[in-house]
């Protein structure tokens, strides 16, 4: 649906997007994740023909973003960052304007607008001026605008920024709903958001792709080792040594003395679930007592920080 090859965009001496390539297939919900200034917005602006890349090419719905930019824009619904809207219009005139520019025949217009009002939950604000609406409703009007021509592709730049928690959940629900039959790219800083809405993630940092994959795949990309914490009370001295002999364990560290003679160890392994069982078995064999055994997988947040700070320090 979207195919991006070595896109590059510079502003003066800032390289905003540096040689980015990726593909998005039909029906995917792709999340752009990255710190401020990573190049997410710039990439989206090139895909929506607001900016022209310095080099590289991209096709959206089979059309080239430079050669065929009008066709591209017909297939895409775009919600820019902060959902800018014509504040001096009322909600319905605004949607009518977008429908007119998009060439929706007047016989269908009223029906489409009614459907948008329903889908985006705008019933209570139809007669109001856009400028008077709360941030959440502005965001909904923005979404309604992106959907009015029933596009195959949606590009949403930080659709939930600035909303309160309940609005965030509602907008996410809405995106999930409307993303069922569409290809979606959305950008965000909020990590749980990608896990909640995206089928695939692209971590962008300093204009380059730092990692890409499903949230699960990213765990292994980041060298995703699980941490297993275990607190053991034993008479023999060889506990750490025996623990490290368990297959799959890459490191054993004593992390603290607890009350009642328990000692807490931290084990690192790629296969945390099996190692947990092995630890238990070893305890039974050696007559240790265990009063704590739990496993922590690397969260997307850890991966994000790891990937985006690793590059900076290098």
């Amino acid at each position: 649906m979207i195919s991006v090859k070595s896109l590059t965009k510079t502003f003066g001496r800032t390289v905003a997007v540096n040689n980015i390539s990726f593909e998005v297939s039909k029906g995917e919900v792709l999340g752009f994740l990255g710190p401020n200034g990573a190049g997410k917005t710039t990439t989206m602006r090139m895909l929506t023909c607001y900016l022209i890349p310095d080099s590289g090419t991209a096709t959206v719905a089979g059309c080239d973003i430079v050669e065929d930019s009008l066709e591209v824009r017909k297939h895409v619904g775009y919600l820019p960052e902060n959902a800018p809207l014509y504040l001096d219009m009322d909600v319905v005139s605004y949607l009518e304007f977008v429908a007119d520019v998009r060439g929706i025949p007047s016989s269908e217009k009223a029906g489409r607008i009614r459907r948008m009002v329903e889908t985006c939950g705008l019933e209570s604000v139809v007669g109001r001026y856009v400028g008077e609406l709360s941030k959440g409703f502005k965001q909904r009007v923005g979404l309604a605008q992106t959907l009015i021509h029933d596009p195959e592709i949606l590009i949403l730049d930080e659709p939930t920024t600035g909303l309160d928690p309940s609005q965030i959940i509602e907008i996410r629900q809405l995106i999930k709903e409307i993303g069922k039959e569409r290809t979606v790219i959305l950008s965000t800083h909020i990590l749980p958001e990608v896990e909640a809405t995206c089928s695939r993630v692209l971590i962008i940092n300093e204009g380059e792709i730092a990692a890409s994959g499903t949230p699960e795949e990213l765990h292994s990309v980041a060298g995703g080792e699980d941490s297993i914490y275990v607190a053991i009370k034993a008479d023999d001295e060889g506990v750490p040594e025996k623990l490290s002999r368990i297959s799959g364990v890459t490191a054993v560290k004593k992390v603290g003395d607890l009350d009642d003679g328990y000692i807490r160890f931290l084990l690192k392994s790629k296969d945390g679930a099996r190692v947990g069982e092995e630890v238990f078995r070893a305890a039974v064999e050696n007559g240790w007592t265990i009063n704590e055994l739990h496993r922590e997988t690397l969260s997307l947040e850890d991966i994000f920080l790891k990937l985006t700070t690793k590059e900076k320090s290098a």
């Binding site: 602006r45 929506t48 023909c49 607001y50 009008l70 066709e71 824009r73 017909k74 895409v76 775009y78 820019p80 960052e81 902060n82 800018p84 809207l85 014509y86 504040l87 977008v98 520019v101 998009r102 060439g103 605008q145």
Partner: peptide, 14 residues
């Protein structure tokens, strides 16, 4: 100033 330029110019208009 409001940023609607981005909205307008990403609609299919020349």
């Amino acid at each position: 100033k409001v940023g609607t330029m981005e909205l307008l110019m990403t609609l299919p208009v020349t």
